[in-house]
Every structure is written in C-alpha cells, then in structure tokens.
C-alpha cells in the first residue's frame, strides 16, 4: 500500500522509515514523503491512483493540511483516498472540520505509532 506522509518536519521521514521498517522490508507498506501541502498536491497530481492513504499534518506554513484535504476531495478525477489528519491541536473544532471535509480519521500529536500501526492493519483496502 502506498502511503504519502505530509509534514513540514523533515525528520518525520527517518522516523516513519524506522518505525515501519519491518512492514517496509516485507513490502506490506510503502512510504513517500512530502514536506508541504503544495508538494503533496503536486505529487498526487503526478501519480493519480497510486497513493491509497494520505497521512497529513494540519499545521504547516503555506497550504495547510485541511486545504490539502479540500483539494484532494475536490479533484474528482483522482480515486477516493483515505485521509488521516495529524495535528498538535486536538480540539473538537479542528476534528469536526477535518471530518466534515471528508477525512477518515483524526490523530493528535504526539503520534502513537502502535495505534497507527493498528489502524493501518484494520483499513479495508489493505
């Protein structure tokens, strides 16, 4: 399964690659990384239908995670993709807004990787 992780912190890449090293080694999961909403959108447009899951931070300079979500949902030519939003602000408003925009799940920082792994295994598309 192709997963696109979007976060403005570049160290997220090393962290995900190590946390999911077994899944990556076995070929279960494949991660790609984008460091801004704009970069993520360009990546998605270049590779329609490859990515099945987007994990995006909300608070990023420039295009925010929610805007990215809006774009992804609006551009109908892309297949429906699962979107999980990650934010440091676990308030209810953000959650409602994200879910209203069509996000599948809403996670708060600090990310619990055990929980995330569980959620990924339970995804129907897997």
């Amino acid at each position: 399964m192709q997963i696109l992780v979007v976060d403005d912190e570049t160290d997220v890449r090393d962290l995900f690659q190590q946390r999911f090293r077994r899944e990556i080694r076995s070929g279960e999961l494949s991660f790609n990384f984008a460091f801004s909403g704009e970069e993520a959108l360009a990546y998605l447009r270049a590779r329609p239908s490859e990515v099945l899951l987007i994990l995006s931070d909300i608070n990023m300079p420039g295009m925010s995670g929610l805007e990215l979500l809006g774009h992804v949902k609006a551009e109908g030519h892309m297949p429906p993709t699962t979107m999980m939003m990650i934010t440091a602000y676990g308030d209810d408003n953000s959650r409602q807004e994200a879910l209203g925009l069509g996000a599948t799940d809403f996670l708060t920082k600090p990310l619990d990787f055990a929980v995330l792994r569980q959620k990924l295994q339970e995804l129907p598309a897997l």
């Binding site: 160290d11 962290l15 946390r19 440091a88 920082k109 600090p110 990310l111």
Partner: peptide, 10 residues
C-alpha cells in the same frame, strides 16, 4: 512540542 516528540520517538 515537535522536538520533544522527536526526542521521544527516536
């Protein structure tokens, strides 16, 4: 919060 998360995670 971000650097602290990284410290914990790494």
């Amino acid at each position: 919060q971000n650097p602290l998360n990284f410290v914990n995670n790494f």
